[in-house]
Simulated assay, not measured.
Amino acid sequence: MAGAFDFKKEYRDLYLPKAKPALVDIPAMSFVAVVGEGNPNEENGAYAEALALQYAVSYTIKMAKMGPWQPEGYFDYVVPPLEGLWWTAAGGFDGRNILEKDKLNWVSLIRLPEFVTPDVFAWALEQVAAKKPELDAGRARFLTFAEGPCAQILHKGPYDDEPATVAELEAFIAANVLADDIADPKNAAALLDALDADGGVPPVRLHHEIYLGDPRRTKPENLRTVIRHPVRSA
């Protein structure tokens, strides 16, 4: 019997890059997204609440296999890794000023399989609202967009050590006669509307991280994070 579909293994170029910078063209995909601001390390803070909501939605969809109804085209899968788009109100955030965590704004993302439509997503939100009323299901948003041309690198080690890896990525971008295509969103609501590009490349693209380890269970030196920057011709 075939195992559950694992996005990380099937799309290694997107989720398991080498520790050297590379160019990649990111196709369209859908996400459960929650937007917020503040220190992601704050215990029981907005970021922790966002993650609880996202995983509740993701596992509700995954575990539809155990219920009386499954979405059309359903297949069993491993819930993809957590991702995040990051910026600050001051603008110009590229990951090198990551230590100013209280100033961070974020869109937390978890990829959804292709069979998830807006109707399936709405069904999942109804299930979460009924089973976990302590979560604000209304904060979750279904987004579909393509990130397009990007440069990315695998960072190994603590999150606070990311600036050195970002600097290596930036040097690679410049050496390829490219420039960051990071845009400063006017506000969170406008950002979500801009990101919902119906499969196209949105007008606002940001510093992007994909978390391949759980910091609650992994030693800081063993953490792995994909760092991705959208690029354009210089």
Rank of each mutant, 00 (worst) to 15 (best):
M1C: 07
M1P: 14
A2S: 07
G3F: 10
A4Y: 15
A4P: 06
F7R: 03
F7Y: 12
E10H: 04
R12D: 00
L14N: 04
L14A: 03
L16G: 05
L16A: 04
K18G: 04
K20N: 08
P21T: 00
A22L: 15
L23R: 12
V24Q: 06
D25V: 04
D25L: 07
P27Y: 11
A28V: 02
A28W: 13
S30F: 04
V32P: 12
V35R: 00
E37D: 10
P40F: 05
N41Q: 03
E42R: 10
E49D: 06
L51W: 10
L53E: 03
Y55D: 02
V57S: 07
V57N: 11
S58C: 08
S58F: 06
S58Y: 07
A64S: 06
G67Q: 09
F75V: 05
Y77V: 00
V78F: 08
V78I: 03
P80W: 12
G84W: 08
L85R: 07
W86S: 01
T88Y: 14
T88Q: 14
F93M: 06
G95M: 12
R96Y: 12
R96V: 01
R96D: 08
E100M: 10
K101I: 06
D102C: 06
W106D: 01
V116I: 11
T117W: 10
T117I: 04
D119Q: 11
D119R: 14
V120H: 08
E126M: 12
Q127M: 09
K131G: 05
K132S: 06
E134K: 14
L135H: 11
A137M: 10
A140I: 15
A140V: 15
L143W: 09
L143Y: 08
T144Q: 10
P149N: 07
C150V: 01
Q152M: 07
I153L: 15
K156M: 09
P158G: 01
D160K: 09
A164L: 07
V166D: 09
E168I: 03
A171D: 04
V177D: 14
A179S: 10
D180P: 08
D181Y: 14
I182M: 13
K186D: 07
A189V: 02
A197I: 06
G199C: 12
P203V: 00
P203Q: 00
L206S: 02
H208K: 11
E209S: 11
Y211E: 03
L212F: 14
G213F: 07
P220Y: 11
P220E: 05
E221M: 13
N222W: 15
L223N: 06
R224H: 15
R224M: 14
V226C: 06
R232G: 05
